[in-house]
Design a protein around this nucleic acid. Sequence first.
DNA 1: GTTGGTGCAAATGATTTGCAAAAGG
DNA 2: CCTTTTGCAAATCATTTGCACCAAC
Lengths: 144, 144
Amino acid sequence: MACEQETAAILRGAGQRVTPQRLLVAAVLRHAGRHLSAAEIAREVRARYPVVDVSTIYRTVEMLKGLHLATATDMGGDDLLFEWSAGEAHHHLICSRCRAMQVLDRDYLDGLAERVGRDFGFQADVHHFAIFGVCRDCREGAGA
Amino acid sequence: MACEQETAAILRGAGQRVTPQRLLVAAVLRHAGRHLSAAEIAREVRARYPVVDVSTIYRTVEMLKGLHLATATDMGGDDLLFEWSAGEAHHHLICSRCRAMQVLDRDYLDGLAERVGRDFGFQADVHHFAIFGVCRDCREGAGA
DNA sequence: GTTGGTGCAAATGATTTGCAAAAGG
DNA sequence: CCTTTTGCAAATCATTTGCACCAAC
């Protein structure tokens, strides 16, 4: 509710129109607290608003991305996953074997960004990284 | 030629059959010295071997990946890009605006991998990273 | 009123898959 | 021979797009 007001204000301020679909997509992402696929967002949104097409989800998320309100990440699955991007930047360690995922604090990559910026003038977007590998459990469990 | 012998030996050692298609895909990747899409690999291979289907390319690259001879990376384009993975690990800085790409030395990420391994027991695969952002030229050229 | 957003349905396009024929060991 | 690989063609499936209609402003 308060959230919706805030989202509306941001959209309006960016010269974007405020529609119920957009507010709902934003609200769903904001309160999910996790990564959602386009299909999942659609399901959640439809629970509160009858007919919303997936294409609208994609178009809306694309716009939210432009406003830096959402991020899209390939987490190794079949589809892109979207997430509300307010709050602290963070990263993910994703196990290639068991798919387990754990959050990695932003400071693990801040140094890299600084160094790359200093050395190459490259402004790295290290807001949301997916790092693949093998987790502790899988390493201890399986042989290798 | 010498390369083909070596590739054949590796395949055989892994219990994989040696076929001209596989040797060619490996050779193309090895000598490309850059990232290739499945379609590009197909084109190169067909230049030397008449009829090779894209599905064979995909199946072969998948197998090479399993043997750690090739890597697949999403570089932000429409399709996956494959690369021969022998030689020094390296990473890429990819400009989201102009698509320019520059190589980043492996040591930029080695520290991260060590730290993650120490702190979480997570064996990060930082063999081939794609870091997106804005390059110096685009930052100086355009306003932001 | 204008402009931009939405739903629908159809297109896109890379990757995958079933299967019979062909090749590897 | 027996098994794996291949080419072909068809299927998948997430994402995109054209378009007529409707909603913001």
